[in-house]
Design a protein around this nucleic acid. Structure first.
Length: 600
RNA sequence: GGGGGCGUAGCUCAGUUGGUUAGAGCGCUGCCCUGUCACGGCAGAGGCCGCGGGUUCGAGUCCCGUCGCUCCCGCCA
């Protein structure tokens, strides 16, 4: 039987049982070792690596000597057993090699801007510009395959849970709240624009109003905001889902097994939280200084204001005396009880723009506590602090003071920093939790008014009649009320955000009125949705886990670019495709657009 | 928009207090090598030290500006 044009086997297929066969392989020259008299090539394709070998007796020897890294070649030859002692136990194909009888160059390669072989790190700019080379490399190649497998698994789990997959529009209308939109000019309607969806939020709610009951989608989302390591510029994917006739607990019961399931399936043996604890937002902020706490870090902060009120440490005592909202929080640092560590943390804090970081540490012979702060408040107060926090000899504690809302972000950073510095963060687990009871509203310092804390689609967690009767000027009550909104957090990364939606038009109008939005604004921006809700809308809710972040955690990566096929750089440019790019005058004319570029 | 880090050979990096002709590894070119799997050995080519200005007898090194990449803050329903 004639051989296939390109291959009889893949580069990962051959085993001892194939010895003696004439085979044909095609792939990339991964690594070439030329010994003069004998020449080895590791031939690589998607499936693996096979060693092919030539010596001067081979008719292809002369050609083999001209091959270079990353050339694509077809190799014909005989599969044979490697000589005793030269097997490679690290390769599945390591028992065999191909003796080359014929070579065809299918695609030559010039000098490479970055090698495919090895695990040397390269700058982002080169990696992104030559993404196709980077993707040949083992790590990235396997990350992308992992991504595909995770998405398959998510999809299968959702279908098994009775969810059905829908597609929603990409060209749609601008959304009233949230991030900056990507706009697409309309040719047919001069001066008007489509927006790319920041999430299929309104569509999935409309799907519920349309009676489909359980929706999901591997949904692309577009937001024109600046990037972070865990926030792709431009676009990202969510496992978007929505359910009708559900309470918060029903959503949790549907989603938690899916998330836990993929973490267990792809977590490479790392432990996964068996039941996600529910942590109220306010508790997360006071204990961990963050609404996305890393629960692998055992440090729990505590309020220790009482021990500093009227104490000899005037800075803290004055804060507490002069500001009714003032507080002192403690960040315990077990086993951190030495001056070098305390000083290092203090300089770190100064580098973060803080005046410093107060500390006490306890060491042998100084049971009363050491450090300037301990001296100022005296041994009794120092002991009381140690007792409250359960600290003793060998431990330390750091303190932040002021208004909690001003220092909480820094306190959370300090908690993380202490955990990292003292190696307290367990690396072998995925710690997941629900954050619940988010505030419905917050005070906008910029606009000097009450505004939605997260999004305007959430149902207030309050009796409807009571909510409708709320006084928009009762700021204290408004700022204290919660929305039925929740997040999933894993190892300090926010994985998803969801809510039971506000499906009652009168509640929606009231919610917007409280935030100072006139009913006409609501009608103009949100009219379609509002009408849908007034023509028989079921109670519904959902959530949208971020797929890129899930894959990032499961791949053990710290940057989303490592799990996205063709990512953009931090300035939202695609260096490979050259996007964004200028439009031609003809295109602009058709779109009725005249450019007014910033002066340079 | 703001702050930190980085920018030296195709790539990864070193480069002392400012002082001769700017170095190493990988890659590339040539030669040698019959069992390697990060093969080995010899020789060679390859530099606007991001760019512009300044200080100096002399700048990769110090100062100012600027550009690029990145991390963070702002921003992110």
């Amino acid at each position: 039987m004639p051989l296939h044009r390109y291959r009889s086997h893949t580069c990962g297929a051959l085993r001892e049982a194939d010895i003696g066969q004439t085979v044909r392989l095609s792939g990339w020259c991964h690594r070439i070792r030329d010994h003069g008299g004998v020449l080895f090539i590791d031939l690589r394709d998607h499936y693996g690596l096979t060693q092919v070998v030539a010596d001067p007796d081979s008719p292809a020897f002369k050609l083999a000597e001209t091959l270079r890294a990353e050339w694509v070649v077809r190799i014909d030859g005989k599969a044979r057993r490697r000589p005793a002692g030269t097997e490679n136990a690290d390769l599945p194909t390591g028992q065999v090699e191909i003796y080359i009888e014929d070579i065809e160059v299918l695609g030559a390669a010039g000098e490479l801007p970055m090698p495919v072989f090895g695990d040397q790190e390269y700058p982002e700019e080169i990696r992104l510009k030559y993404r196709f080379l980077d993707l040949r490399r083992e790590k990235l190649h396997s990350n992308i395959m992992l991504r595909g497998a995770i998405i398959d698994s998510l999809r299968a789990r959702m279908k098994a849970g009775g969810f059905f997959e829908f597609q929603t529009p990409i060209l749609t209308a601008s959304s009233p709240e949230g991030a900056r939109d990507y706009l697409v000019p309309s040719r047919v309607h001069p001066g008007k624009f489509y927006a790319l969806p920041q999430a299929p939020q309104q569509f999935k709610q409309l799907i519920m109003v349309a009676g489909f009951d359980r929706y999901f989608q591997i949904a692309p989302c577009f937001r024109d905001e600046d990037a972070r390591a865990d926030r792709s510029p431009g676009e990202f994917y969510q496992l978007d889902l929505e359910m009708s006739f559900v309470t918060q607990q029903d959503v949790f019961d549907a989603v938690e097994p899916v998330i836990r399931g993929v973490f267990e399936e792809f977590g490479k043996g790392k432990s996964v939280t068996p039941n996600f604890p529910m942590i109220p937002y306010a508790e997360a902020m006071t204990k961990y200084g963050s609404d996305k706490p890393d629960l692998r870090n055992p440090i729990v902060m505590q309020d220790v204001s009482a021990h500093f009120r009227g104490s000899g440490f005037k800075i803290f005592a004055n804060i507490l005396a002069n500001d009714p909202k003032g507080a002192v929080w403690a960040i315990p640092a077990p086993k951190g009880g030495n001056r070098a560590f305390a000083d290092r943390m203090n300089s770190w804090a100064q580098g973060e723009g803080q005046p410093g970081l107060g500390y006490i540490f306890w060491r042998e012979g100084e049971e009363g506590g050491a450090g300037p702060l301990a001296k100022n408040i005296g041994p009794e107060r120092t002991k009381a602090i140690a007792d409250q926090l359960g600290l003793g000899i060998g431990d330390a504690c750091f303190f932040v003071a002021g208004k909690p809302k001003d220092f909480v972000r820094f306190a959370g950073l300090a908690r993380t920093k202490v955990g990292e510095e003292l190696n307290l963060i367990a690396q072998d687990r995925f710690e997941l939790c629900w954050i619940v009871d988010f505030p419905m509203y917050e005070w906008s310092e910029e606009d000097k008014k009450i505004d939605f804390s997260h999004n305007p689609f959430s149902m207030p967690n309050m009796d409807v009649d009571e909510f409708l009767a709320l006084d928009p000027n009762d700021h204290e009550k408004l700022l204290a009320m919660k929305a039925i909104q929740y997040d999933i957090v894993c190892n300090g990364t926010e994985l998803s955000s969801g809510a039971i939606r506000n499906h009652r038009p009168e509640v929606m109008k009231k919610a917007f009125a409280i935030a100072g939005y006139d009913e006409s604004v609501l009608e103009a921006k949100f009219g379609g949705m509002l009408h849908a809700l007034s023509l028989g809308a079921p109670p519904h809710g959902g959530i949208a886990p971020g797929i890129d972040r899930i894959v990032m955690l499961l791949a053990g990566e710290e940057n989303l670019r490592e799990v996205v096929l063709f990512p953009m750089n931090q300035r939202a440019e695609d260096l490979l495709m050259g996007a964004p790019s200028e439009a031609t005058p003809k295109q602009l004319k058709e779109l009725h657009i005249r450019l007014e570029l910033p002066k340079k």
